[in-house]
Simulated assay, not measured.
Amino acid sequence: MVAQGFTVDLTKPLVFQVGHLGEAYEEWVHQPIVSKDGPRFFASDFWESLTRTVWWAIPTIWLPVVCWFVFMSYRMGHSPSELALMVGGGVVLWTLIEYTLHRFLFHIKTKSYWANTFHYLIHGCHHKHPMDGLRLVFPPAATAILCIPFWNLVRLISTPSTTPAIFAGGLLGYVMYDCTHYYLHHGQPAKDPARGLKRYHLNHHFRIQNKGFGITSPLWDHIFGTLPPAKTNGKRS
């Protein structure tokens, strides 16, 4: 595609190309290429390897961490029923964070070189290549970094003994989010609610990208009025 005199060469590493699109980046990144073969991001094999993650790495790495943090609150005297409530609250908190990040950060409009580059790395690549199976889940290193502000947020709204379990619930919510996201793109659910959720998410990708920000649930889309309309005139909003 030619934009502002610049052509993106899909046969070469993309990350340091897309910034040159300027204001045309927004249109370019929302014209998906439906292929299971993902593009190359970096010329360096090391940096390229950090961008690719198999889906099963997410539960394998993070579910033991979830269990450990639940056990921390258990050792501080909380009963199983209390732990269940705290973990459930953490999951709900995650769904709000998931919605907020997706709506206000992942879909921020950019036009400068570095803003375009940053957006492409965190989410634009997923809209451009929605079937790239190795870039559907967050790399563990990035998740570990994001756990730090999330832990501090939970500390602000909870007590020392409840913080670990609520944090564990949020982390569990994240694991559910990433696994669900992968399944919605590569699974073939035969029954609702999974079938409806897949339809809901693919609608976000291929019909109206500024609605339907929930992945694990459309709950917050209902609450904040970002449900996609039942029918459109066939044009992308």
Rank of each mutant, 00 (worst) to 15 (best):
Q4C: 08
T7G: 02
T7C: 04
T11P: 05
F16C: 07
Q17C: 08
V18T: 10
G19K: 02
G22I: 06
G22P: 02
E23S: 15
E23H: 08
A24L: 01
W28M: 07
Q31R: 10
Q31D: 12
V34D: 14
V34I: 11
S35W: 06
D37R: 15
G38D: 07
S49C: 10
T51C: 06
W55Q: 12
I61P: 00
W62L: 15
L63W: 05
P64F: 10
W68N: 11
L85M: 12
G88S: 13
G88C: 02
G88Q: 02
G90F: 03
V91E: 00
L93S: 04
T95F: 05
I97V: 12
T100V: 14
F106E: 04
A115K: 13
F118N: 11
H123T: 08
H123D: 12
H126I: 11
H127P: 03
K128C: 03
H129N: 09
H129V: 06
M131K: 11
G133H: 00
G133W: 00
L134A: 05
A141H: 14
T143E: 11
F150K: 08
W151K: 07
N152I: 08
S158E: 12
T159H: 03
P160Q: 13
G169V: 02
G169C: 03
G170Y: 07
L171S: 04
Y177F: 14
D178T: 06
C179V: 15
Y182H: 15
Y182N: 09
Y182I: 03
Y182C: 01
L184I: 14
H186S: 08
G187F: 03
L197P: 02
R199M: 11
H205M: 05
K211F: 11
G212K: 07
S217G: 08
L219I: 11
H222N: 07
L227K: 08
A230V: 13
N233M: 11
